[in-house]
């Protein structure tokens, strides 16, 4: 499903050069839940961004569902994201001028959705427990509520892959727990491949596989026994 080969990311500002990723290789089969761990600055968010096609790699290849994406132009990447990838950010990243429901519907409208979009948006908001907050704007919602809207939005177009960057990082433990439960249950329901970036050991323990990064390299790729057996 996801195949990363020899991936590097270098930022050259002209005055100095930062090697963020120094050759990453891994593949994630369909439906797997992978946690990417590492300390701050280890390159995990950059890796996630590259997998989502949000940034361009310095070298290496990324294959999503049999398609190499590092050479794709910006707009093709956008279309690919719209169809295949759901994204959950640490700081929610909702569009402030749209209501909760409109935010959830947005990916569906961006891909020129035809069908049950509004009904599905309502259903997803129900599932994240915000059916009474549909018409609220992001500023009128708490952090936990905003992240639940972001979850509903991420699942809106039934993506094959869900990428989550520290989804509970900005939340208190109760809210963080609630969001995680929702994420896991939606993921189980939809059978999505889930890649989650976190430095929270507790959160990572729910994953079937944990890839640990340090200084831009994979230093550990651990898999739960039952998954290894699979």
């Amino acid at each position: 499903m996801i195949d990363v080969r020899g991936l590097t990311k270098v930022i050259d500002t002209g005055t100095h050069r930062v090697d963020i990723l120094k050759g990453i290789d891994f593949s994630v089969p369909k439906g797997q839940f992978v946690a990417i761990m590492g300390s701050s600055g280890s390159g995990k968010s950059t890796l996630l961004g590259l997998v989502a096609g949000l940034d361009s790699a310095s070298s290496g290849e990324i294959w999503l569902d049999g398609e190499e994406i590092t050479k794709l132009p910006e707009d093709k990447l956008a279309v690919l994201r719209g169809r295949k990838i759901g994204f959950v950010f640490q700081s929610y990243q909702l569009i402030p001028t749209l209501t909760a429901e409109e935010n959830v519907l947005l990916p569906y409208e961006l891909v020129g959705g035809n069908g049950d979009g509004p009904a599905r948006a309502k259903q997803l908001l129900d599932e994240v427990g915000l059916s009474d907050r549909r018409d609220h704007y992001p500023v009128q919602l708490s952090g936990g509520e905003q992240q639940r809207v972001a979850l509903a939005r991420a699942f809106m177009v039934r993506p094959a892959i869900l990428l989550a960057d520290e989804p509970t990082g900005n939340l208190d433990s109760a809210n963080g727990r609630h969001v995680l439960d929702l994420l896991l249950s939606l993921n189980a329901q939809q059978g999505t491949t889930l890649v989650l970036v976190t430095h929270d050991q507790q959160l990572a323990s729910h994953a079937a596989r944990i890839i640990t990064l340090q200084d831009g390299r994979v230093i550990e790729d651990w898999m739960k026994r039952e998954d290894v057996m699979k």
């Binding site: 949000l54 707009d75 956008a78 279309v79 994201r81 719209g82 994204f87 990916p107 961006l110």
Partner: peptide
């Protein structure tokens, strides 16, 4: 954000 959830530049 819009681009990251699938919006093309033209949109």
């Amino acid at each position: 954000i819009m681009k990251s959830i699938g919006a093309r530049s033209s949109q």
